[in-house]
Design a protein around this nucleic acid. Structure first.
Lengths: 101, 101
DNA sequence: CTATAATATCAATATAGATTGATATTTGCC
DNA sequence: GGCAAATATCAATCTATATTGATATTATAG
């Protein structure tokens, strides 16, 4: 399989997307969140128990992950449950493998 | 295969290493360098032709990649050739897959 | 309809790291 | 030795983003 690193507009676009993806996950707490959610969805307070971070900071990291589409959320009463968007993660992993593998 | 996200000291260590790896590659120019080197080793001036960056900045990114062990270098006259450290890249890709895949 | 639990938002600050400009080092050549 | 090419280093600045503190929102219970 051939892959030019950045000559075509398409591969340039792929590189940019991959970089954004990597920036989003290159943060220990976010990576931990993704790892925790692999097993099953969790509400913020459950995630909080894992992370030893102030609540608002967890909200922030969740927002970064969600804005990028790596996780989704659903409300249940006063709680918000977050879950992996496995399709999206798979897509970016595959994109990334064009550049480094 | 079971993998606790961060409870044991070992998986905590894996998470830290993975995060560092991701930080190193979460930069478009460095990612491009890695991509370019996949085909074959290149000297700085060849890499420079691809990157449209000032020479010293390329040296800097190469240093980051080399310090982290993702690339190696050899001198030939006045030129310095850089090449992928495939073993190292494979190792970190595998580490990363514990957290996200 | 007030209080509380769960979560989110926002502005301010701190910090890490990319970029720039200037200069240094190394090597080969005359 | 003196010069030029190739590359590296260093200090200064700029920029993005993590963190903090305070406050807002939303939903349920009483």
């Amino acid at each position: 399989m051939k892959f030019d690193c950045c000559k075509t507009k398409k591969s340039k676009n792929n590189l940019d997307q991959t970089t954004e993806f990597l920036k989003v996950i290159a943060e220990p707490n976010r990576l931990k969140i993704l790892c925790i959610l692999r097993k099953q969805e969790k509400c913020v307070c459950e995630i909080w128990q894992f992370l030893d971070l102030p609540q608002n900071l967890i909200s922030h990291h969740l927002k970064v992950l969600k804005d990028f589409g790596l996780i989704g959320s659903r409300k249940e009463g006063t709680k918000v449950f977050y879950f992996l968007n496995k399709k999206s993660i798979k897509k970016f992993n595959s994109l990334m493998s064009h550049f480094i593998k």
